[in-house]
Design a protein around this nucleic acid. Structure first.
Lengths: 266, 266
DNA sequence: ATACGCCTTATTGTCGACAATTAATCTTGA
DNA sequence: TCAAGATTAATTGTCGACAATAAGGCGTAT
């Protein structure tokens, strides 16, 4: 529900290819199409009841979003998530969202700041209710960052973060489970950032945002170290593996482990 | 010639769509297909002697690179360059390339640093020969930044900068002419950055790179203020308009002013 | 028994044609 | 004469079929 802001695509496109792109991205991000699985064009086209033309165009866009990898004359596979790539994204987000926070402090309109405050208030209630363990908070976290980036007013910055990096980050979170025990700390950090923005203190806002993302990255690093030590292969997802179920799309391939969509709060 | 590093695509793809994407991107970036011009699928397909299928896939990739804008059931137009968007890119580059410089100082291998030094040496000779006015320097500038980013070792950072932002930056430069009088200063700034990287001083490298890009942005701002004051419309390109010639691709549309490819040093 | 080469098969890449939507033109009325 | 509407034309979106490439299986020779 709070994820509404993340669904840029709720204004349905009249063309099949665009709609399909949204559907496939959602399916890949939420793990419905497992990472590493091969995507067969005829099978997928039949699955969605369309021709291969629009499908291929959607696949091209997925490739540009680096959600699938394609080799010519061979086919496309859903990207396999490596911890290194996740950390790379954190490093970039630290720089980019720090910038976004500074710009937001300079450009954001007062009503938008008030909305941001209201959003954090809802998060506060939620965290208090679920004792800081809620998985939901993780999504709320993305919602918060989403709002800040929107407030930066830099359209290309918005595009880079919201069209590509956030979907990747969400994908990793869905894969790894991520019922972060950092919800309470994260919320506090969020509030400090918003305070700085409300004070129009861009320098402080950037510093706080960078520290926040750095802390987030370190928590992820710890988590990765844990799951790696517990015997699982490094690139595997540490989530409930639904072995009794068959791949819903590709049908015949069953890589590492298939994970069902982690929640339906959108 | 020095642009060789920028041509990631010299390893020709066996598929038409990929080859066409490279060709079209080059044509758009260098202004052969003027900004704002409508792209007709049948015309373009005939022009390149291929079918509309691969063309559409290439167009989808161009759209992802934000080189063309598409409206459903209407068509695609080459993006029109606004000064605001150019400055937005500079702001992002400042954050991202500052990060890249820091990472390069930490991760770059010694031979790569030596290569970088050699590159700057060639630039030094070139600048001395052309008296700091050379247009070439502008391309060399991109080459330099390209190498630094490659040295960061962060694959996603490399992808964002080299696959999208650099092509846009190059497009703006081609459109605006850009025989920057800042070549001498820029070269000096480049050398300082490389010194910091060689010293493995990441913090300094980042600071120097940010300052360098900031100076570059300010020079561009001044240039924009000049051309805007000299009577041209703000989004127009301030380059020789070849009015006697017809649009080589779309054939029937002739927006603002068509500019021929600024150089052939690749 | 293993390795090399050939062949079969399935998948991707490409093409031409049809349908749907949009933009422009022409007509008609006030 | 201008505006509003319908009509026409062109472009885009979609589809099914063919061709080319690569992967996998099979057989044979060493």
């Amino acid at each position: 529900m709070l994820l509404a802001a993340l669904n840029l695509e709720d204004a349905v496109s009249p063309t099949i290819a665009d709609r399909l792109f949204d559907q496939l991205r959602k399916a890949i991000v939420e793990g419905e199409i497992p990472p590493g699985s091969k995507i067969s064009e005829p099978v997928l086209a039949a699955r969605y009841g369309i021709s291969r033309g629009p499908l291929r165009e959607a696949m091209r866009r997925l490739e540009s979003s680096s959600l699938v990898e394609r080799k010519p004359n061979v086919g496309a596979r859903v990207i396999r998530l490596s911890s290194e790539q996740l950390l790379e994204i954190y490093v970039i987000r630290e720089a980019l969202e720090g910038l976004a926070a500074r710009l937001a402090a300079e450009h954001m309109a007062e009503p938008a700041i008030a909305e941001l405050r209201a959003l954090l208030e809802r998060h506060r209630i939620e965290v208090a209710r679920e004792g800081g363990q809620s998985y939901f908070q993780t999504e709320g976290d993305l919602d918060f960052h989403f709002c800040i980036v929107q407030g930066s007013g830099n359209r290309r910055l918005i595009s880079i973060l919201c069209n590509d990096l956030y979907h990747l980050a969400r994908m990793y979170r869905c894969q790894f489970g991520m019922k972060s025990d950092r919800a309470r700390d994260a919320l506090k950090e969020h509030e400090l950032v918003v305070d700085a923005i409300a004070d129009r203190d861009g320098e402080l806002a950037e510093w706080l945002m960078r520290r926040h993302i750095r802390a987030s990255r370190r928590a992820t690093e710890r988590r990765i170290a844990l799951t790696a030590a517990s015997g699982q292969p490094p690139a595997a997802n540490g989530l409930r593996s639904v072995c009794g179920r068959r791949d819903p799309v590709t049908g015949n391939e069953y890589p590492l482990s298939a994970s069902s969509p982690p929640d339906s709060t959108n």
